[in-house]
Simulated assay, not measured.
Amino acid sequence: MPETPKILLIVCAALEAVVGLLMVAVPGRILARMLPGMVPGLDAIVVARLAGSALLSLGALAWFARNMTDPAALKPVLAALLVYNVLAAVNLFYQGAKIDSGAYAPGVIHLILSVALVYYLRQGA
């Protein structure tokens, strides 16, 4: 792995920004794809847009932190991204087991990002 997490932060920023923008712009399509057979109501669309806004915030956090070199400043950023990615992976694997196996692929992506984040946290960022 590279010495600094810059590439990882850029990847996180790009992924979170794309998914966040899609959830804000077309939440009904995203929800229908995530939950096959379900028709999202207004309440689900509002929550999806709120989640999209949170993802955009995480993307911005990762983007603005990409050039950080101070381990003390970088550690909380990596930890926050780790918490999100672990929870997202658990949620997607659960959804894959209960609702739709299509959730496994994004779950694996979040799991890979989690492993990389743990690597850099253990390296002292």
Rank of each mutant, 00 (worst) to 15 (best):
Val26Pro: 13
Asn67Ala: 13
Val90Leu: 08
Ala32Thr: 15
Asp70Ile: 02
Leu31Cys: 05
Asp43Thr: 11
Val26Leu: 10
Val115Pro: 03
Pro36Ser: 04
Leu42Ser: 14
Leu58Arg: 09
Pro76Leu: 01
Leu9Lys: 06
Gly107Thr: 02
Val90Phe: 11
Ala79Cys: 03
Asp43Asn: 14
Leu9His: 02
Leu121Trp: 00
Gly41Glu: 06
Tyr120Gly: 05
Phe93Gln: 02
Met23Ile: 08
Glu16Val: 09
Gly96Gln: 00
Ala125Leu: 07
Val83Gln: 05
Asn67Lys: 12
Val19Trp: 06
Ser53Asp: 12
Glu3Val: 15
Gly52Ala: 02
Gly59Leu: 04
Ala116His: 07
Gly96Trp: 03
Leu9Cys: 02
Phe64Arg: 13
Tyr119Arg: 12
Val39Ser: 15
Val83Lys: 05
Val46Asp: 14
Arg66Cys: 08
Gly52Glu: 00
Ala88Tyr: 05
Ala79Trp: 04
Val118Glu: 04
Ala116Glu: 11
His110Cys: 14
Ala44Asp: 15
Asp100Leu: 02
Met68Trp: 08
Ala32Arg: 13
Thr69Ile: 07
Ala125Arg: 06
Thr4Pro: 09
Leu31Pro: 01
Ile99Val: 12
Gly28Lys: 08
Met1Lys: 03
Phe93Glu: 06
Leu113Arg: 02
Ala60Arg: 08
Ile45Glu: 15
Ala54Gln: 10
Leu15Glu: 10
Gly28Val: 04
Ala89Ile: 02
Gln95Trp: 11
Ile10Asn: 13
Arg122Asp: 11
Ser114Ile: 04
Leu117Asp: 05
Ala48Asp: 13
Leu117Asn: 01
Leu8Cys: 13
Leu15His: 13
Tyr94Arg: 11
Ile10Arg: 15
Ala97Lys: 03
Ile109Val: 13
Pro40Trp: 06
Arg29Asp: 14
Gly41Pro: 02
Val11Gln: 10
Met68Tyr: 12
Val86Ile: 06
Phe64Asp: 13
Ala73Asn: 02
Met38Asp: 13
Gly107Ile: 01
Gln123Asn: 11
Gly107Leu: 02
Pro5Ser: 07
Leu117Pro: 05
Leu74Gly: 05
Ile30Glu: 11
Leu74Phe: 03
Ala54Gly: 14
Val46Pro: 12
Ala80Pro: 02
Asp100Trp: 01
Ala48Pro: 10
Leu9Met: 03
Pro76Ala: 00
Pro36Glu: 10
Ala14Asn: 11
Ala48Ser: 13
Ile112Met: 08
Leu35Thr: 09
Ser114Glu: 00
Met1Leu: 07
Ala13Glu: 01
Met1Asn: 11
Ala62Phe: 03
Gly52Ser: 04
Tyr104Ala: 01
Glu3Cys: 10
Val86Gln: 07
Ala62Ser: 05
Asn91Ile: 10
Leu55Pro: 00
Ala72Gln: 10
Ser57Asn: 11
Leu22Val: 09
Val46Ser: 13
Met23Tyr: 06
Val77Trp: 05
Pro27Arg: 01
Tyr104Gly: 01
Leu50Glu: 06
Gly20Asn: 08
Glu3Arg: 14
Gly52Asp: 00
Ser101Ile: 07
Ser53Glu: 07
Asn85Ile: 01
Ser53His: 13
Arg49Gly: 07
Lys98Glu: 12
Ala17Ser: 15
Leu121His: 02
Val24Ala: 11
Met38Asn: 10
Ala25Phe: 10
